[in-house]
Simulated assay, not measured.
Amino acid sequence: MNLSKSLAATLIAGSSFFGAAAVAEEINVYSYRQPELLKPLTDAFEAETGIKANVLFAKNGLVDRLGSEGENSPADVLLTVDVGRLDAMKQAGIWQAIPTDITAKIPGEFVDPDGAWAALSLRARIFYVSKDRVSDEELSYADLANPKWQGRVCTRSGQHAYNIGLIAAQIANEGEEATKTWLEGVRDNLARKPTGNDRAQVKAIFSGECDISIGNTYYMGKMVTNDKEPEQKEWAASVRLVFPGAAQNKTHVNISGVGLAKHAPNLDGAKKFIQFLLSEKAQSIYAETNFEYPVLPGVEASDLVKGWGELKADDLSLAEIADKRDEASKLVDEVKFDEGPQN
């Protein structure tokens, strides 16, 4: 089977993705993660095992592609961010269980109960606050709805996967009605209609458009190390991070994760790849290069990340969050969150 030229152009492995020329010691990875984030991991995997990981990257459509390819799919594993996409893979039935001996060391809340997926790293959804205009040292998600912050909050679309995950966690922890009331309060505290990505919110704080935003932790690392766009370092210098309290005073986390394809043609190599991604070596690579939190207990975050504060992750099951995502999306539409303040 040959990939079309347009898809083949996205490969980062340096060889044909799948076909007669492929050798046994190769695996094929469908990935929503950016190629530059994966290369340190795939290089280390090949160096350790001799198995080449051919990576097909796309921003969208890989779950549908896996389904349409069926038994002829070349994919061995799927890598993605956000539990919603992993759950979509599960609901589509295009997975097989990851062996429990591979995921045994991972906390249970970060592994699908049926083995359909496993977390590889964690990202916390925290507050970016103005150094000059916000003195609060402690904040909770509930505080986002406090009238104190009216006209001072900014965020990306409520329908974005990162915010849907947070809202779904609120539903799981607080109930749907309480979450609806909270979401209305957050909406009415917005300084503008939700727009842009997480970094754009930090830019808005830098420019004085708002004072507090919601964002994933790793964006701070991306900004402070961004030599290609040094203005982002200025944005980052204008804010500090505050870790919010959720249930039991813990912070909502989402994941990057992996699924094992139902018809994986290179099954043994695929299992070795997942096992490697959950090893201390790979988890340290995640920590140092991607500014994410390792999911394997005992592996520390990078010094930069540790300097932002202590993460006390909510131990709510990610599978439960996935189950509440549809409810979260409906609430966002119901309260017209993306239209901005209604007061």
Rank of each mutant, 00 (worst) to 15 (best):
F57H: 14
G19V: 00
I126N: 12
G50W: 05
D227W: 09
V295S: 02
G257D: 01
I98L: 02
L277E: 02
S140A: 08
E209N: 09
D268F: 07
S213H: 03
P265H: 08
E48T: 09
P99F: 01
A264H: 02
S329D: 14
G340S: 05
G151S: 03
C210F: 10
S238I: 08
F110Q: 09
P40H: 06
A92Q: 09
G67Y: 09
V63R: 02
T289K: 13
A53P: 10
W308L: 15
I98Q: 01
L241E: 03
I321Q: 08
Q96N: 05
N290I: 02
T217S: 12
K272Q: 13
A47L: 04
D64C: 02
L79I: 12
A270E: 00
G84Y: 03
V81T: 12
G185P: 06
N343E: 11
K180V: 12
S140M: 04
A119T: 11
K306Y: 05
V239I: 15
L11Y: 04
P265N: 09
Y141C: 04
L79T: 07
A169C: 06
V253G: 11
Q232E: 12
L62V: 03
P194G: 04
A261L: 02
A264M: 04
A200W: 00
V83F: 11
K262S: 07
L79M: 10
A75K: 00
K336Y: 12
T251E: 04
A161M: 11
P297Y: 07
A178V: 10
M89N: 14
R65Q: 14
Q159V: 11
M89V: 13
E137L: 08
Q201W: 01
G67C: 00
K59M: 11
S279W: 06
A145S: 15
A8K: 05
